[in-house]
């Protein structure tokens, strides 16, 4: 897969890892179509922003339709958009649970479904979903977040089998905590205890995430699908 003039869709691009990945792949010659619920201030001739809630089926369909018309096909999808809720299970509101599943699971599903159609028409593509080390570490206080990401792992593994015949490869990256808004409210002692359970005890960096994405997107990775790669030696 040459990275020239290829089209990549990234979700959750307004800030954090999504913003970083957009800029990272724009620098490498990709055309990037990004989305978030709110407008983005990312300005680049090859960046196209869509104000879409990833769990809004009609909105996602319209975004895919527009991208199909503009670019014909899509070669890569990074399903980065995600939200977390950290709370004891007995204190977790149903509304929060629903919101986490809508964004993390239903959003990932909708983008995979709609953009795999565009990849199929382009002769194939690569999907990278976003898991977390919270799932294999069974982190207390993150039941809903970890469960939603466990669903993404299953989705990734089953989709990999269903889409392989269409030359669409589906994998997932499972980051450790990276210093973004997602973990801003987590107490320091909780974070230290988490890092202590990793083989390599440090926060993840943005480049650790893009490195795994690079691997999954690399032309030579055409025999790699259905895999979940955790950072930091977790798993």
């Amino acid at each position: 897969m040459s990275e020239k003039t290829k089209v990549m869709v990234v979700t959750g691009t307004r800030k954090g890892i999504g913003r970083y990945l957009s800029e990272y792949y724009l620098e490498r010659g990709w055309t990037v179509a990004g989305c978030s619920r709110e407008a983005s201030d990312l300005s680049h001739p090859a960046y196209h922003h869509y104000c879409v809630d990833v769990a809004d089926e009609a909105g996602v369909r319209k975004m895919a339709f527009d991208i199909g018309r503009r670019f014909g096909g899509v070669q890569a999808l990074l399903n980065n958009a995600g939200i977390a809720s950290m709370n004891h299970i007995l204190l977790t509101p149903m509304k929060t649970t629903r919101r986490v599943f809508e964004t993390n699971v239903f959003g990932t599903f909708l983008f995979c479904r709609e953009f795999a159609k565009l990849m199929q028409r382009a002769g194939g593509g690569r999907i990278v979903n976003f898991a977390t080390v919270a799932t294999p570490l069974r982190l207390e206080g993150e039941a809903i977040y970890a469960a939603s990401k466990a669903a993404i792992e299953s989705l990734t593994q089953v989709m990999a089998r269903e889409l392989a015949e269409l030359n669409i490869l589906v994998n997932a990256v499972g980051p450790t905590p990276v210093k973004t808004d997602l973990i801003r409210s987590v107490p320091k002692e909780k974070m230290d205890a988490l890092l202590a359970r990793q083989a390599i005890r440090r926060f993840g960096e943005m480049r650790d995430v893009s490195n795994v994405c690079d691997f999954f997107l690399h032309p030579d990775s055409d025999f790699i699908t259905g895999q979940v790669m955790y950072l930091g030696g977790v798993g």
Partner: peptide, 20 residues
């Protein structure tokens, strides 16, 4: 599956509407 995806795409191109 391929037929359904092709029809959705053909309909989009011809009528300018996104259907599933």
């Amino acid at each position: 599956v391929n037929l359904i995806v092709s029809i959705e795409s053909a309909v989009g191109e011809r009528f300018g509407v996104a259907i599933t």
